[in-house]
Amino acid sequence: MTELLVSPPFILALNFFAFLLGLAIYRRSGTPLLHPIVGASAFTALALWLLHIPYGDYQRASGLLYALLGPAVVALAVPLRQNLPIIRRAAWPLLVTLVVSAALAPVAGVLIALLLGAAKPILLALSGKAVTTPIALGLAEKVGAAASLTVGIVVFSGVVGAVLGPPLLSRLGIRDQRVLGFALGINAHAIGTARALEISALCGAFAALSMGLCGALTAFALPFFLGR
């Protein structure tokens, strides 16, 4: 019985069902607060707990999904290629903002945690907070951060940025959709890009562009800064 519960076919079916459930909850609610990963991970964790499946066994049986993360990162080149022409319209403002923000976003998070006396594993995991999840997972492995903590931080940051970012800017009278999209892509990654696409195609294109470029830039810069 236990052998069946930790076999890859059973675990993959569990993952797939949890994903569909999370997707259905998200579609019905329509708020980024309930991003599919929120419902899916809560359901899976509950199932593991009820069935007494150790997390390590579950992880091992989910190998196929981990193996697909690499190709998914490579696939990010496609939306990046499609949105790259945007950059020609305002190359300097976009590139300067990209470099400054790619550095600023993790530094702001790490500094706040440092001031509040957080432990080193938390600081390491926070360094990847402005990077889309599949890239952040690859980076976590390179810089020695805990994968689960990294995913949690990236998803939570994404939800915060996607839910609170747009009303924050409109309260301040910033209505330029290029600006909103760019800020969403860097600070709220994939969840922010999904939100940006709901606002307008222009907003979504800027978000997809800044998310891809910020992820690539951080992946190149961070390992050097952390001396690995």
Binding site: N15, F19, I37, A45, Y58, L69, S148, L149, T150, V151
Partner: peptide
């Protein structure tokens, strides 16, 4: 794809 890591 990143569900297994998130469950952690």
């Amino acid at each position: 794809l990143f569900l297994p890591a998130a469950v952690g």
